[in-house]
Nucleic acid binder design. Sequence first.
DNA 1: TCTGGGGTCCTAGGACCC
DNA 2: TCTGGGGTCCTAGGACCC
Length: 420
Amino acid sequence: MLFELSSRDQSTLALVDCNNFYASCERVFNPKLRNKPVVVLSNNDGCAIARSREAKALGIAMGQPFFEWEKLVALHGIQVLSANFALYGDMSRRVMEVLKEFSPEIEIYSIDEAFLSLDRMDIDLEEYGHRIKQRVYQCTGIPVSVGISRTKTLAKVANHLAKDKSLGSLCLLDETATDRWLAVIPTQELWGIGRKKSAWLAGQGVLNALQLKNAPDAWVREHLSVMTLRTVYELRGIPCQALEDGASSKKSVATTRSFAEAVTDKGELGSLVASFVAMAAEKMRAQGSAARVIQVFVQSSPFRSDYYSNSAVGKVPYGEGYTPRLMAMTRGLLGRIFRPGVAYKRAGVILMDLVRADIEVSDLFAGRRYNEREARLMAVVDRLEGDVCWGPELLAWGTVGRQEKRTPKFTTRWQEVLRV
DNA sequence: TCTGGGGTCCTAGGACCC
DNA sequence: TCTGGGGTCCTAGGACCC
């Protein structure tokens, strides 16, 4: 029974979150970036997707287009870098390996965050949080913040405060002390409360996390959603979101890109979409899935008045994983939504309704997912890790991608390993 | 002039059925 | 002119997350 748990058996968990992760990764391999404002740019060097503390202090916002703050670069000596996702992915893996030393139960929540269960551990939690931080820094060079509490939502709050107040690690276990903090946290800072909900709540006079915690259940359920009610319960210290084990696989996989220069030619767009489906299919096979729904979408610039956006879906009841057939399908789907004369700025392929690839479908009409030869071919392709270029996807990439400020792939490519 | 990418979940509304 | 009610499934779109 939930309410018979003694306080000793209450759930305890930590949220470990890397500080300014992408910027920190770059600093590990280039010490000259330390103590300087660093900004990492999105694909095509379009906008800011990571900022060091110094860059945030200059007022550069998350997602803000480069051209809007370009004039600050020379003025403040901002170090501007193209995103190097291969490096960040590898550094993330290293950080997670270190965290596994601290708990057998860990949920990797995103590239730079993980929840650790600290249940039934006979430890000094305050001290443990600081040890985690020190150990990760010592092993990887990445600074992290640690928040420890009874629920994921409260651990998020603790982490936010630890980062904000430069505490390194913070435990929120006592309800009275926790409430004092909640009273000074705007609702929008809470996990699960975004711009829309916080604006609506503000209109109702609910301005801070403590007020939301004390709001009546029925009122929250009626005007917001079950998700928000869960958030409210978690603010009260009642866990509604369990730690998920690492076995969970994705329900959809996508590869989408914006183009540095607009694409109008159908053949060129077709080549791009073909390369997207090849990349998405590779990610999908890596988690052992096959797709029953394939979606292709295309868009012109949404910042122009003649904005055009469309998508088409195709269904494969048996679950497809064979790249050449997926490419043939996406070609057909693109044909249904391509409009001549449009300057396309973005396109993508989403593989959805994923099913396990290893379960044979027995439906007489569904057909077989792969034959032996096809499965072997895909296995070889996947081992080559993206170095395969499928026929239709040749050509197009050089003209659309822009990454002028990328640092080398220090940890994942032998040719680019750091020389000392 | 120039504006990311990859996910999850919920909800409302329409189609359809009995 | 009168003209049921309820369930399920699907889809598009919104909100939110990092």
